[in-house]
């Protein structure tokens, strides 16, 4: 396999791990880290595609994505604090009052 393909495989692998973390872990901090991992996997893939295609678009977009990811984790942490105040725990299974 060439390097281009290997990097794409790496990105897909990281994306899968991130998705599993988001879906399976009960700790909301880990879920937040999973979302970050997902976005970073997408970043790797963007950079690699724009390198192999000889276009710079993808590499430039990554800067914006990094900024968005930072904002997203800030908001995620504040939602976490709010969750802890109301439930006294940050486990996802503690917050199950809405059903029906």
């Amino acid at each position: 396999m060439t390097n281009d393909v290997l990097i794409q495989v790496l990105a897909a692998f990281l994306f899968t791990i991130g998705m599993l973390v988001v879906l399976l872990r009960r700790d909301t901090i880990m879920v937040l880290m999973g979302i970050e991992l997902l976005l970073n996997a997408a970043n790797i893939s963007l950079v690699a595609f724009s390198k192999s295609g000889g276009m710079i678009d993808g590499q430039l977009q990554v800067f914006f994505v990094i900024t968005v990811a930072a904002a997203e984790s800030a908001i995620g942490l504040s939602i976490l604090v709010n969750l802890y105040r109301n439930f006294g725990s940050i486990q996802t299974q503690s917050a199950t009052t809405l059903k029906g």
Partner: peptide, 21 residues
């Protein structure tokens, strides 16, 4: 509200990452 915010955030973050990838 805290619970709804958490659920929306996690699932919405997953969807956004799907969109980007």
């Amino acid at each position: 509200s805290a619970e709804a915010g958490l659920k929306y955030f996690i699932l919405g973050g997953l969807a956004s990452a799907f969109f980007l990838y």
